[in-house]
Each structure stands twice: as structure tokens, then as C-alpha cells.
Simulated assay, not measured.
Amino acid sequence: MKTIVKGLLLAITLVIVFYSPAKIGNVLYYTLFPLMFVLVYIFYIISYGVSEKDVKKVRDEPFALSFFCGMVPPLGEGDLVRGRLVIDGKKVVLYKRSDKDWKRNAPCKPVWSLEVPDLKSIGVGPVLSVRKGIVLYQEESSARFVYFKAKKQKATIIKALGWSETPHIPQPVEVYSEAASAPSFSKAMEGSKPDQKEGLEPESNTNT
């Protein structure tokens, strides 16, 4: 199917480039443009599309929420891993459409997962240049997903994870070497006190 769509796209492109409306007719020529966009959409769906029905064919456990998104690769290198992110109170799993081993009863497969207890918090905002999405924070790393409805769906995602609110992530505080080597406040205050002999009260200035 994918090969057929690619062949049709190539043929339409060649006709648009090498033929003028006068040769094939204005109606037919300008009809090729919307047809080309439809074929591009079909090609995208058969290449990356994963529906909830597809997920249920390879998964027995129920889930609270799912949505189509693109996982940003580590360090932002390479193409997005497009698929359906499935969320329940135990685990977050990304299902990707099967390519060469595609089968009607197994149209997708899990390619990434994260246990909810290992998830420290979530955030929404730019995840790849200006493209917005959701960030899943772990102990020492994070996973980013391009999802343009992330801000609108944040409350729904939190509920699907079984949380009542978003856990707060403490911001790291950097201490420079000069500050680290400086004496503590209590020690500095001790050094500022006047020397006194042990067991003696300070002398009184009152004349007897």
C-alpha cells in the first residue's frame, strides 16, 4: 500500500512539473493539487498512524488515556519517534506502528515505557524548538513528546496517572567554590565576639 501511494505521488508530481494546464486541461491539472495533499495524508497515516483500536489488539490491560504524539530522540538528534502514548496509573507506554512485520492482528508494538513510580513530575511547553509538548521528568533524565494539545490536556494527563496534582521538582542550587570555602555564618559570628575570660563578667563602667 505504501509503495502504491509513493508511486502515485511521484506520478502526480511529474505531471504537475512537466505538463501545462493547456495540455491536460485546467480542471484536471488543478485537481491534481488537492489529490496530492490527500495522498500525502494517507501516506502519513499508513506510515505512522496508531489508533486506540490498534493498541487494544496488542495490549490486554485497560488504559485511562492515549494520544498520538512524537517522541523527541535523545539530544534532539534524528527523526521523531511517532506513535500513540498510552497512560494508566502504573505505566506510560509509547506504541509505534509496525513496519516490515506489520500484521492485521499486531499493527503496532511498544518501543518505550516508563513506570509511573519512576516518574517524578510532568511539564508542558516547548520541547523541540518552538514545537510544544509534554515533558516527563525522571530522577536524572527526562522524556519529551511533541503534542500540540499538551497544555489543554495537562489536567487530564495528571488524572490518568492517578495523581491529584503535579509533584514539585526541587530546583538544584549551585554553590560556587568561593562560597563553599567561606566560613559558616555561626562561625563568623563567633569570630566577631570580643574575647572574654572564662567565668568572668564584663567589667562595669559604674563608679563606686
Rank of each mutant, 00 (worst) to 15 (best):
V111E: 04
P117M: 09
V111R: 00
P107G: 07
R131H: 08
L94C: 08
K103W: 07
L65K: 14
D118N: 15
D118I: 02
Y95Q: 03
F145P: 01
K53D: 14
S51W: 02
Y137I: 12
K152V: 12
S98N: 15
F145V: 02
V81I: 15
P117D: 08
V146D: 04
A106K: 13
K152R: 12
P74L: 13
V127D: 07
V124L: 06
K90Y: 09
Y147D: 05
V116S: 04
W102S: 04
V93Q: 00
G89K: 14
R59F: 04
V124D: 10
A106F: 03
P117I: 10
K57P: 11
I157W: 00
L94N: 04
D101E: 14
S129Y: 11
P74T: 09
A155G: 12
S98Y: 03
Y137W: 15
K120N: 11
E52I: 09
G83L: 05
F145D: 00
S66D: 06
E77P: 03
V146I: 14
E77R: 15
E61G: 07
V111Q: 00
S121G: 09
R144F: 08
V92M: 05
V111C: 06
V127E: 07
P126D: 14
I157G: 01
G123W: 01
F63R: 00
S51F: 06
V86C: 04
D54M: 12
L80F: 12
F145G: 01
P62I: 09
A155C: 03
V92N: 01
F145M: 02
V135N: 08
V116Q: 03
I158H: 00
K53S: 15
Y137M: 14
R131E: 13
Y95R: 01
R144E: 11
F148E: 13
L114P: 01
D99Y: 09
V58H: 02
Y95K: 02
G83I: 02
V130F: 10
D118M: 12
K132G: 11
